[in-house]
Simulated scan of single mutants.
Amino acid sequence: MDPKLPRVATQPEGSWDERDDLDRLYRRYAPWLGAMLRRRFGRGIEADADDLVQETYARLAPHDTTRIERPQALLMRVASNLATDLLRRRAVRTRHAQQVQREPDTAQAAASALDILLVKEAILQIPEPYLDVFVLRRFHGLTYEQIATRCGLTVKSVEWRLARAVEHALKAQAGLSGRSDR
């Protein structure tokens, strides 16, 4: 015999000749029902077992409880269905929460898209002699020496042109976005 379960849980169901009303039904089977829910569904509903027991009896309240022939079977069926629904709703909420975390906020995505567009426009406004050096450094990852060799410049000229390119891009971006702080 399981020491965690009330004695009622281990006894045969017996007849329902007494025709208890809902209050007696609750007093007689509520501890057993809570223990059976915890046993069947485990940790998934541990904190909600008492609420499920209450909801089970609330579902039976509109019905004539004097006509129930096998109260334990009925109570367990209703409570099991409620527990299954609860676990299913939790799973859906969890999946939804994970999906929301993976998807960026639409306003944030729009702001990011606008920022990207402003950066592209700012880069396109860099004068030609500086643009080549900027693109080779920032997008192709070439070193100053490699850029100097490729463009026929000195390393010092590459550094100077890159500084001018960044300066133009920042001014252009500030002008495009309406900000004067950059």
Rank of each mutant, 00 (worst) to 15 (best):
P6S: 04
R7T: 06
A9T: 08
Q11I: 07
P12K: 10
E13T: 13
S15M: 04
D17C: 08
D17H: 08
E18R: 14
R19Y: 01
D20C: 05
D21Y: 07
L22Y: 04
R24I: 10
L25R: 06
R27L: 11
R28V: 04
P31F: 08
W32P: 00
L33N: 01
G34R: 12
M36F: 11
M36G: 01
M36T: 04
M36V: 08
L37Y: 02
R40I: 15
A47W: 09
D48A: 08
A49Q: 01
A49D: 00
D50T: 09
D50N: 11
V53Y: 02
A58H: 11
L60S: 10
L60F: 10
H63R: 13
D64R: 14
T65C: 12
T66H: 13
I68R: 07
I68K: 03
R70A: 13
L75I: 02
L75D: 01
L75S: 09
R77I: 03
V78Q: 06
N81V: 12
L82A: 01
L82K: 05
L82E: 03
D85I: 10
L86V: 05
L87M: 12
R90V: 07
R90L: 14
R90M: 11
V92P: 05
T94S: 07
T94A: 12
V100W: 09
R102M: 07
E103C: 13
D105W: 00
A107Q: 14
A107I: 06
A107L: 09
Q108L: 14
Q108A: 13
A109E: 05
S112P: 00
L114Q: 15
D115W: 08
L117K: 14
V119Y: 06
E121M: 12
A122D: 05
A122V: 03
A122R: 01
I123A: 09
I123V: 15
P129M: 03
Y130F: 12
D132W: 06
D132H: 15
F134E: 05
V135W: 05
V135L: 15
V135E: 07
V135Q: 10
V135S: 01
L136N: 09
R137L: 02
R137H: 15
R137F: 04
R138N: 10
H140Q: 15
L142P: 04
T143V: 09
E145G: 08
I147D: 02
T149N: 07
R150E: 15
R150V: 08
C151I: 04
G152P: 07
L153P: 00
T154P: 05
T154V: 10
V158E: 02
E159P: 00
R161A: 01
A163Y: 11
A165D: 04
V166C: 10
E167M: 08
A169R: 03
K171E: 13
A172V: 07
G175I: 03
S177C: 09
D181G: 01
R182T: 09
